[in-house]
């Protein structure tokens, strides 16, 4: 996932790229640089015993060094902002009921990915 330049940070690497590399030690990326397995539509899926715990772990690792903001309307969820260049947002309950996470590196020319966290059978 490396190789793109973000002039806002010393050395030019956006912290989210570093955080993704760190998380990939636990959850390997596929050939397209995405976490998990292909799901329905354009989403990836990660299955675990406790999807919310896994989703929160993803957000905790990926948001290191970011400004973290709340969601309005008293909703749970957070988003992490790395200098208005890359972003991660977590919704504990998305429309299908599962936690979902959006990783957005489009401004670095990399693919955006959405992950749904589902319970392992």
């Amino acid at each position: 996932m490396g190789g793109s330049h973000d002039s806002a940070y010393p050395g030019g690497q956006n912290p989210l790229q570093i955080n993704i590399a760190e998380l990939a030690k636990e959850f390997p990326l596929n050939a397209d640089g995405l976490f998990g397995e292909p799901g329905t539509g354009n989403s990836q899926v990660i299955k675990s015993q406790d999807p919310l715990v896994t989703a929160n772990h993803f957000f905790d690792v990926l948001s290191q060094g970011a400004d973290i903001g709340p969601m309005p309307d008293g909703k749970e969820g957070q988003f992490a902002n790395f200098s208005n260049v890359t972003f991660v947002s977590l919704r504990p309950t998305s429309s299908d009921g599962s936690p979902s996470l959006l990783i957005n590196l489009k401004r670095l020319g990399q693919k955006m990915q959405k992950i749904h966290f589902e319970k392992k059978d």
Partner: peptide, 8 residues
């Protein structure tokens, strides 16, 4: 809401 360094 929640704005610190970056305006988003």
């Amino acid at each position: 809401l929640g704005i610190k360094r970056f305006l988003a």
